[in-house]
Every structure is written in structure tokens, then in C-alpha cells.
Design a protein around this nucleic acid. Structure first.
Length: 557
RNA sequence: UGGCCUAUGGUGUAACUGGCAACACGUCUGAUUUUGGUUCAGAAGAGUCUAGGUUCGAGCCCUAGUAGGCCAACCA
């Protein structure tokens, strides 16, 4: 209660807090405004968590609004994926809106501006206008069509709407200031002609509003109190405010925050599209992709993503967040939720020579030491088991450095017995084919009367009950830390080893009925999720992420 | 020869609105551990871009520099 350490608010929360306390707003209204022209990625997750999170935190509402004002690039396919991604993250929108729902209203707004003498139809071509537009350091000149009468503008604009002109023949511009140092105030385009079918309004319109004339107006129509967007829209704010002010409509307020940049990761719809189209990945939902669909398939959870976004925070300076933070959030979440099982990625057979040929024993294994409610399971133990090749060394370093198996070394097979390595076979290539060991009957887990202590505990899979699976082991898609800093093609920085398909892995028998979406931890290895490519006779797992590995670190020293 | 924004440990954020810099990740020790995981204890690491100024006192305010970002799409 009073003891709660007051968590500090970010600058947006402070603003909202003030607006609520001062009575400027009774409640807040936010919105997440994607353009349905691509798949959502981890960067969008920030905006989603922000907009929906703020509404939750301050008891307001958050709409989902598709900014669909450019029919050439937009498609229902994207609308559907965006909606399911947001739902998967666990957010519910209040209103579902489309900028295209407002086309009629927007048209009226344009007419109102024309009547006020604040907008005009311009006949200049794109090239012609650019020639007089000036540059950031030089003022522009006014279009010769700038002084048309209101009546003429009204008629021309109506004709534009009625399809009398071809694409690019005319545009509607706001009449602001051709010498403004802000390029967006130099008579920006409000409407352009596009004889293109729209994914929702079909051929009802052949003129479409631009972002600047749709976004703020849509915000206003929906009575959005806090319109959040990324830093690059900062220069649009004066125009955003000018339009709302001239139209005398609800004063939504735009506030910008820094977008999310992640190390070793591309967060750009355009570039991600390129990866998909050129086949560098298997699709938008390839588990290596930073798309919501991709990381979901990979095994990242909504909770992990939300926690991560929370840890990242919100500010106005742009930087680059370390993926390690994301990975930490994922491990933290999965550690608590996921059941432990045995999975051996690189199996080698181990024969317990003093174990009777056909004897099997039932062992009890803990499903999740972090969650007692997860219970236990039975495992069958026998004479032959698989262990990981990496857990055996022919010539191991001192027992202080190497806890695992080696000639004459002892380890415990988890939940079973302590074994001592008595020998091994090698093939002509020098590869170890079988390891031999003897178990100590006094050392059964839970009933150990031997007093023995071993430092190493190994996972194992009974040969008789082993299940085969294909394991897709992912690594980062790019090997360059800051992909914003490069001048060459980002595809030169692709990690050629971002996917390794492992077909030799063996899993414990309990996994034979694993279902798509199931997530587990292979003890001492990492977190894995059953992929949708799984079929009745083929199990496919994605490696979500490895466990932290201090041993691996030490080896490097 | 423009305008706007930003500048705090390696990284991301804090600092109750001026009172000698905190948290998280990462890194490094050590303990515990039938996961070299988890957990726990601890350590190193910035004196807040620079220079002036206001003030008893500035990371917070002012000025000037410097550095980085954004802006000249009929994209959003």
C-alpha cells in the first residue's frame, strides 16, 4: 500500500497523469494505428504495449485503427494478421476502426478547408512542384494555381472525386507557407488521385487522403486524447496541429517517443519484406524473424515480450537495445512456466554393463522445480540409454574443471543412479560409438545410501523408449550488432548459420504425444517449442533459446 | 546557408521537478544446487558531451559549442 515504492513514470505517463489531475481529460483514449501493408514486428510490440498498456493503467480506452489510406500497398491479409497478433499479445481493443471508414467525413473536412481558403487544387505535376518547393535551407515559391477562387477549387475538387482526372493530374493542397523552414508546412498534399481499388471501399473512391490529412483527423474523430507515434513524425506535428485547429475539431495531441531498435536485429517492414521475398527466410513467421508471428512460432511468449518492453522503457532519445535484454525476459518467463524433460541433441549410446538385460525400473522425475503444481512424471530406466556426446570426454581436464563423464569418472544420471565409466568403443574415424559404465545400486535417487558425491548430473534418454524428432536450432539472423550503422546492404550481414536442422536428436518417451505449441525445457540445454510443421509421424521442435551457459563462458577463458 | 529533437556506467532507463547519480540487463567473484539452469550474497563500472553562466547549491535552468537523429515520397 503506502509501502509501494512509487515506480517512476515515464514522460508520457507523467503527461497523462497531469492531464487527468488537472481535469483536462476525464479519461484517456489512445489507439494503435498500423497500416495494413505488412506484418507486425517487435518494434510494433512497443507501440502496442504502450497504447494498450496506458489505457489499462489509467482506466482509458484504446482503439485499433487501420491507417489504410494507400490502397496500392494494403491488403486484408495484413489486417487479419495484425488483429491476430494483437490478440495473441493479450490485448483487446475497444473500437475497431479504419481510416477508410472516415473517407466521407474526410472529404467534407477538405471541402471545409477549401471554403476557408485554406486549401486549393494544384495542377502542377510532382516534378514541377518539387522544382519550386525549395529545400530545407531555401524557401520555396508558390504554385501558380495557389490563388484559384474558392468556387473553382470546390468544383475542381468535386471533379477529382468524380474521376474526371487521371492519376497525378491534380492534387489538393493545404495553403500554408511555402517559405516555412518545415518542409511539411510548404503546402502539403491533402488528397491525391489514385484510380486503384481499395481493400475495403473498393472503387467507391478514386481520391485518397494522405497520411497527414487522415491520421490526425481520424484521431480527432475518435476523440483520441493522446496520439502516440515515433520520433520521425515529430516534424509532422505542426501540420497535425494546424489541420485540427483550422478544422476546429477535437484537439487530439500528438506525442512522439523513440522507436525500438534491437541489436543484431532488423526492425523495418520494408527490409523484412525483402528477406521474405528473396527467400532468405521461410516466410513472415520464420522463427528467426523479429515479427510477432515469427517470435511466437519460435516460442517467445506474450508475457516475455511485455516484460521486455517494460524493461526497455520509453523515452525520446533513440538508441539500440541489447537483444540480451529480450533473451533474458524470455528465459525468465519460460523458466517459471515450462516443464523439464530430457532431450539429447547429439546422442551417443551408453551401456550399463552390470544392469540386467531386460530389467526396467520406474523413476520419478520432477516436472518443474520452479512450480510444484506441475507435478512429477514416471520415467523408465534400463540398461541402454543415450547421453549427449558433449558430456563425455576421452581425455577430460581435472575433475575440478570437468564435472561430466570420462574414463573412470563418475556422474549421476538424473533421477537414476551414479555410474562409473569403464570404457568406450571408437569407430575407424575415431568417433566414439558406445560408452560403457557400471552403476552403483546403492545410489538410486532419493534412496542413496552410498554417501557418494558427484559433481556432474547428466540427462539421459532410454534407448528403448526414445522418440525421434527434428530440432530446428536457431541463432541470430544477423551477425552485426548495430545494423543501423552499416552503409552496405544489410543482407551482407546475414548470419549463414542462423538455422541448423538437427535430425539425430532423441527425446524421452513422454514427448511422443507433444502437441503443436507445447513448450518445454530440455534440461541443461534450452527451451523448445513444438512447431506447426509437426505431423503425425514427425515431431518438429524449434529451439526458442538456449539456457544460460556459464560452462561455455569458462571454456572461452 | 535552414528548422526541429536528443545527449546520464558497455546497453536500456531513473533521479519525488535544483540538494553531490539509482534500477535492470550485461560483466566478474563466491555460496547453494541431482539442470555448469534457477536462487542467493557481493564486486567492478558513469561524476551526468564540452565551455561558460544563474544559484548557497545544477544531471536537472540559461547561453554557446560539439556529437547524433529526423525533415525536401501524390509512403505511413
Amino acid at each position: 500500500m503506502e509501502n509501494e515504492k512509487k515506480e517512476s513514470l515515464n514522460f508520457i505517463e507523467q503527461m497523462i497523469d497531469n492531464d487527468l489531475k488537472s481535469g483536462k481529460h476525464q479519461a484517456i483514449q489512445t489507439r494503435f494505428p498500423p497500416e495494413p501493408n505488412g506484418y507486425l514486428h517487435i518494434g510494433h510490440a512497443k507501440s502496442i504495449c504502450l497504447n494498450f498498456g496506458l489505457a489499462e493503467k489509467f482506466g482509458g480506452k484504446c482503439n485499433l485503427r487501420f491507417d489504410d489510406t494507400n490502397p496500392e500497398k494494403e491488403d486484408v491479409e495484413y489486417v487479419d494478421s495484425i488483429k491476430s497478433n494483437i490478440e495473441w499479445l493479450g490485448f483487446k481493443w475497444d473500437g475497431e476502426h479504419y481510416a477508410s471508414d472516415y473517407f466521407a467525413q474526410l472529404y467534407e473536412f477538405a471541402v471545409a478547408l477549401i471554403k476557408k481558403g485554406k486549401a486549393y487544387v494544384d495542377d502542377l505535376s510532382q516534378e514541377e512542384f518539387n522544382a519550386i518547393k525549395g529545400t530545407p535551407t531555401q524557401p520555396g515559391k508558390e504554385s501558380p494555381f495557389r490563388s484559384r477562387s474558392v468556387e473553382e477549387n470546390l468544383q475542381l475538387f468535386a471533379e477529382m472525386k468524380d474521376g474526371k482526372y487521371q492519376n497525378g493530374e491534380k492534387v489538393l493542397r493545404a495553403k500554408i507557407d511555402m517559405s516555412s523552414p518545415n518542409m511539411h508546412m510548404r503546402d502539403p498534399i491533402l488528397y491525391r488521385i489514385k484510380h486503384v481499388e481499395h481493400h475495403r471501399t473498393a472503387n467507391e473512391w478514386c481520391i485518397y487522403p494522405t497520411y497527414d490529412f487522415a491520421h490526425g483527423q481520424s484521431d480527432s474523430i475518435e476523440k483520441v486524447t493522446h496520439s502516440l507515434c515515433t520520433l520521425e513524425f515529430e516534424v509532422h506535428r505542426p501540420l497535425y496541429e494546424w489541420l485540427i485547429s483550422e478544422l476546429e475539431i477535437f484537439p487530439s495531441k500528438q506525442t512522439e517517443f523513440a522507436r525500438l531498435n534491437l541489436s543484431y536485429t532488423i526492425v523495418s517492414k520494408r527490409k523484412l519484406l525483402e528477406l521474405v521475398e528473396e527467400g532468405h527466410v521461410a516466410g513472415w513467421d520464420d522463427p528467426r524473424m523479429p515479427t510477432i508471428s515469427g517470435i511466437r512460432r519460435r516460442g517467445f511468449t506474450p508475457d516475455a515480450i511485455k516484460k521486455f518492453i517494460k524493461k526497455v522503457g520509453v523515452a525520446r532519445r533513440d538508441g539500440i537495445t541489447d537483444v540480451a535484454l529480450l533473451e533474458h525476459a524470455v528465459r525468465e518467463d519460460l523458466n517459471k512456466k515450462t516443464n523439464r524433460v530430457f532431450g539429447i541433441l547429439d546422442p551417443v549410446k551408453l551401456v550399463i554393463t552390470n544392469w540386467p538385460e531386460d530389467k526396467e525400473e520406474v523413476l520419478t522425475a520432477v516436472n518443474n522445480p520452479e512450480d510444484e503444481a506441475a507435478g512429477t512424471r514416471d520415467m523408465l530406466f534400463g540398461r541402454e540409454v543415450y547421453i549427449d556426446r558433449g558430456d563425455f570426454l576421452e581425455n577430460p581436464p581435472s575433475p575440478r574443471k570437468w564435472y561430466r563423464l570420462g574414463p573412470e569418472r563418475e556422474v549421476r544420471l538424473k533421477y537414476a543412479y551414479i555410474i562409473k565409466c569403464t570404457g568406450f568403443d571408437k569407430d575407424e574415424n575415431g568417433e566414439i560409438t558406445t560408452i560403457y559404465a557400471e552403476y552403483d545400486p546403492e545410489t538410486r535417487s532419493g534412496q542413496d545410501t552410498s554417501g557418494k558425491k558427484v559433481k556432474g548430473t547428466l540427462g539421459w534418454v532410454s534407448v528403448k523408449h526414445a522418440v525421434n524428432a527434428e530440432i530446428r536450432m536457431y541463432d541470430r539472423l544477423f551477425h552485426t550488432e548495430n545494423l543501423n550503422d552499416i552503409e552496405d546492404d544489410f543482407k551482407n550481414h546475414l548470419n549463414p548459420n542462423s538455422l541448423e536442422v538437427n535430425t539425430r536428436a532423441v527425446l524421452e518417451g513422454s514427448l511422443k504425444d507433444a502437441k503443436v505449441g507445447d513448450q518445454v525445457q530440455f534440461e541443461r540445454v534450452g527451451y523448445f517449442r513444438v512447431d506447426e510443421d509437426t505431423t503425425a509421424d514427425k515431431l518438429v521442435f524449434n529451439r526458442t533459446i538456449t539456457l544460460r551457459d556459464n560452462w561455455e563462458k569458462q571454456k572461452g577463458k
